[in-house]
Computed example of a mutant assay.
Amino acid sequence: MAHTPVNHPARPIYRAIGGLIGLYLVVFGLLGFFASSGGPFFGQGDTQALGQGTNLGFSLFSIVIGAIVLAGTAIGRNLDVLINQWSAYLIMVVSLAGLAFLRTEANIFNFSVSTVVVLMLLSLMLLMAGMYGKVGSDDEHEAWQKARLVL
Rank of each mutant, 00 (worst) to 15 (best):
A147H: 11
M92G: 12
T54P: 01
A10W: 13
S112A: 14
G43R: 00
S36R: 07
L149Q: 15
M1A: 15
I83Y: 12
L119V: 00
R11W: 05
G43H: 00
L151W: 14
W86T: 06
Q85L: 15
L96H: 05
A74Q: 04
L90E: 06
Y24A: 15
N110D: 13
G130C: 00
V81Y: 07
S95F: 11
L99Q: 07
G39W: 08
S59E: 07
I75M: 12
G18F: 01
N55F: 12
L119G: 06
N107Y: 01
L121R: 10
T54L: 08
M125V: 02
L23F: 13
G72R: 10
F34P: 04
V94M: 09
F42Y: 12
N107K: 00
H3K: 14
T104W: 05
S62C: 06
A97E: 07
L31E: 05
A71I: 02
Q85W: 09
V117Q: 03
P40H: 02
L90T: 14
V81T: 11
E105M: 04
G45I: 03
A67R: 08
L25G: 06
G66Q: 08
Q85K: 13
Y132T: 04
Y24N: 12
L90Y: 11
G53A: 00
S36V: 02
L20F: 07
I83W: 07
G32W: 02
A35G: 09
R148I: 04
I91S: 07
R11N: 07
V27D: 00
L23G: 15
M92Y: 08
L121V: 12
L96V: 08
G136T: 03
S112G: 14
G136F: 08
L70Q: 14
A10H: 11
L79H: 00
V6L: 13
G18P: 08
I65A: 09
G43Y: 06
I63Q: 06
I65M: 07
L126K: 09
A16Q: 14
Q145M: 06
L20H: 03
P5W: 11
L31Q: 11
I17W: 05
N84T: 00
H8G: 10
G66I: 03
L23W: 03
D139C: 01
A67D: 04
P12C: 03
T73K: 01
V117K: 10
H8E: 11
G38N: 10
E140K: 08
